[in-house]
Simulated scan of single mutants.
Amino acid sequence: MSENRTLREAKFALGQVVRHRLYPFRGVIFDVDPVFANTEDWWLAIPADMRPAKDQPFYHLLAENQESEYIAYVSEQNLLPDTTGTPLRHPQIGEIFDRSKDGSYQRRSGTSH
């Protein structure tokens, strides 16, 4: 990796609802790392043929699937915008976000990541 390369700008924004490209879950972004910032064990647990590059933004999501709600850490390459407009049910959303009339999520004043 070159020391003088520039960081890519994040494609998705805080409060944006996204879905996983391969797996059936969606969530709202509450934090962004400009490059991979999780443990090496976490990264190595991903099958080698699906392991994402580390030099891209990674997103922290309040995520949910049909069965449960959880925190997910997902590479930019594996996310797509969620355009369903369906509200998320994750119990922590209200601690961080307010939902506006247009269905978008706005960070509550006084909260930080």
Rank of each mutant, 00 (worst) to 15 (best):
Y70F: 15
I29H: 11
A37I: 00
W42C: 08
G94M: 06
E95L: 13
T39W: 14
L80M: 09
P52L: 02
V74L: 11
V32K: 06
D55P: 03
T83I: 04
L88D: 01
L79K: 10
I71E: 14
K54T: 13
V35Q: 11
K101P: 01
T39M: 15
D41T: 09
Q92A: 13
E67C: 11
N38K: 02
G85N: 08
D55T: 05
T84G: 14
F30A: 11
E40C: 01
A37D: 02
L88W: 03
V74Y: 07
Q66M: 07
V74G: 11
H60E: 10
N38A: 09
K101W: 00
N65W: 02
Y73V: 07
Y73L: 07
Y73T: 07
D33K: 12
D31H: 07
A53E: 11
S100E: 05
V35R: 09
D55I: 03
E69Y: 00
A53H: 09
I29R: 12
L79T: 10
E64K: 01
Q92P: 01
D49G: 07
Q77I: 10
L61H: 08
F58W: 14
E76V: 06
A45G: 15
L44V: 10
S68I: 07
A45W: 08
T83C: 07
T39H: 15
P81N: 11
E67G: 12
M50V: 01
E69M: 03
E64F: 00
N65G: 05
R51L: 05
L44A: 15
K101G: 02
A48G: 05
F30E: 12
S100Y: 01
A37E: 00
A48L: 08
